[in-house]
Amino acid sequence: MLAILFVFCGVGSIKAQNRLYSNDAKISFFSKTALENIEAENKRALCVWDTATGKLEFSVLIKGFEFDRALMQEHFNENYMESDKFPKAFFKGTLKSDKPMKLLMDNSYMAKADGMLTIHGVTKQVSVLVTISSKNGKISSAAVFSVLLSDYNISIPTIVADKINKSIRIAVAVAEYKKL
């Protein structure tokens, strides 16, 4: 009986060792037009990465995006993202590296994250290039990609169409993964 118990505990801890997470991942986005630049940042995105299976998940609260201008933030939540209705955006996918990752040694890797990105209640397949680096035992990752507003059913009224780029650039940065 006790032996079974130990085995279970053992399995549990091995599994957990493969899991890395971050609760202060930074997600920012940018819209650039001749008339106006819009950017916002959320410093408290959640992320879990299972290094054994390559499974990767991100989750971020829409209301946690901070803008320089309060009015933009309000319009973002009220008119575009409808954050009361769709409070979170998330990604669920898998990460595949160009070469086998030895995360305990200093090195950097190019990887591809393939999966489903859900924004504004709409889920789309995305494929994102990710840079992963390990330095002095500190594992970090960074990715930049673009999404089309029309893909996620976010409509822009013609009156402000010149001020919002139809393609939004998104940057995702995890400064340091922690062990789960």
Partner: peptide, 24 residues
């Protein structure tokens, strides 16, 4: 173990203590 299978993030979400101001 069962909880972990639902989604890796689900068990963590409560841990990230965030307060959101209600605007608009």
């Amino acid at each position: 173990l069962h909880a972990q299978e639902k989604g890796m993030l689900d068990s963590m979400i409560q841990d990230n203590r965030q307060t959101q101001k209600v605007s608009g």
